[in-house]
Amino acid sequence: MIIAVASPTGAGKTHWIHQQITQTNKPVGYFSPQTDSVPIDAIYLQSEYPQLKLYRAGEEAALNNTITYLEIPWYLDLAGIEPLLQTFNSHRVAIIPDDTDSTELKTWADEIIPGDCITKPTTALQIHRGVLTGEILDFDSLATFWLELTQGAYGKVVRAKGIFDLVDGQIYYGDFRFGKSELEFKPLNLPRWLNGKPDRKSGFEIVGSNLDQAEIAQTVRDCCVPESAINYYQQQVKESLATELEVV
């Protein structure tokens, strides 16, 4: 069974899928097309539900092995995903904010769920994705960058999410939607990585307009711990964690 979920950006697809997973004890899978380079939502969901089966591009034939939530990114053409949905027994869920009139989604969906209200863009939205390849960031620098980013220092941002490896070995999840007062920024429940450059995916996805992509990329680079210092910091964290264990 495939449950395909679509919505405008920031309306709450991943949040709704999160809620559904908590309500079942059957094997559940998750697949989001064209997000393999930076699978932010997949990593977030798996940190919450370690038993969640993640499907990657090329594994579509196996989607029916579980109850699989297929999260359709807002920028994908619904017609393009149709052949995949036709292959399986699927249920289509559209999450639509009350203040949004989306005829295409309403026509497409079997079920409509009220979504989070979103700020309607006045100009065409652009997406900027940053793929990090084992970079480790300094937390205070990242916090500064995230605040500047979400307050508009690098262009108008309506949605930003990211996962970042930090120097203490934790991976942090940032989630921002314009108009939402709460700024989610928290460590994920995943193993600490304290042996050199992390061999796991991280990065960010920013949706907005007039984004200064070069400045964003440079600022993220400026937040990164130099490779030559990674081992030094990781040793300190290991020693600190060992001391904590002794105290306990």
Partner: peptide, 9 residues
Amino acid sequence: YPSLLAEKR
């Protein structure tokens, strides 16, 4: 310099 970013700037 409380952060790497502050140091660069």
